[in-house]
């Protein structure tokens, strides 16, 4: 028993072993640490190690510094100091979340940020929507659908991959393509319908809607203060400048 304890302590000192709490029963579980990882952890204090483990546990969604404070019970200046130290060593990296741009999020440097953090392929590195990329993709997709007449999101995705239209490091997923196509539907450029198997079919819109209505053709239709307009009031149809311009075209 004593020899075993010495061995465990030795491995713990060299960061080759990690003690974890068992999920059931309250006992301890031991996990071996790879040699490369152990080398990285060499020279870390207990607090540094604690914070590193906290960040590692967050995975690819990252963790906010305030959450680190809550989980480790360390003071904020101490956390800031440790984070800076770990970042200099290249063990963790700062990521910008599209959901909360003001929060400082950290994750292990070797991980790729999750879609929730980056916003997916339609967001640029600055955490904002990449409008030019979206417009280019929409144009390519529209020309393909016009050519095909009717197709599904998977077929569009295959076309994009085959022709290497999208050069992102992370390949586009069917959900990403469906989002793009649905936006084209909402813009009135495409029409969609479910087939017998429940898959959505897309085709170019036959009708692009009305250009104007009798209401929008007269000044009242675009007047922002139509509800304040009363006869003999300060704003009235008799004195309306919009009407004057409309009638004196």
């Amino acid at each position: 028993m004593e020899a075993r304890a010495q061995a465990i302590n030795s491995l713990l000192r060299t960061h080759r072993l990690q003690i974890l709490m068992a999920a059931t029963g309250g006992g301890h579980v031991y996990k071996m640490v790879q040699k490369e990882d152990a080398i990285k952890l060499k020279g870390l204090s207990t607090e540094d190690h604690l914070l590193y483990q906290c960040i590692a546990r967050a995975g690819n969604v990252g963790i906010w510094t305030k959450d680190m404070k809550r989980r480790t019970n360390l003071s904020q200046p101490r956390i800031n100091k440790i984070v800076k130290f770990l970042e200099e060593k290249g063990m963790i990296k700062f990521v910008k979340s599209v959901q909360n741009a003001s929060r400082k999020m950290y994750m292990l440097s070797e991980l790729e940020p999750a879609k929730e953090i980056t916003g997916g392929p339609w967001y640029g590195d600055d955490g904002k929507l990449d409008a030019s990329f979206i417009v280019e993709m929409q144009g390519a997709v529209m020309s393909f659908i016009r050519h095909q007449r009717v197709c599904t999101a998977i077929e569009v995705l295959e076309f994009v991959e085959e022709n290497k239209i999208c050069t992102l490091s992370t390949p586009l997923q069917p959900d990403d393509m469906a989002l793009l196509l649905n936006n084209l539907v909402y813009d009135g450029q495409l029409e969609s319908k479910e087939d017998e198997e429940g898959a959505l079919l897309y085709r170019p819109a036959l009708h692009h809607g009305l250009e104007s209505t009798p209401l929008t053709a007269c000044p009242c239709g675009v007047c922002p203060i139509i509800h304040d307009c009363v006869e003999e009031g300060p704003i009235s149809p008799s004195t309306c400048n919009y009407y004057r311009e409309w009638l004196d075209f």
Binding site: L215, C220, I226, H227, S236, P237, L247
Partner: peptide, 16 residues
Amino acid sequence: ELFLAAGNLHARLAHE
């Protein structure tokens, strides 16, 4: 708004 527009058109016509 259609009612209001109709009323306003009529009022403007009467005014003119």
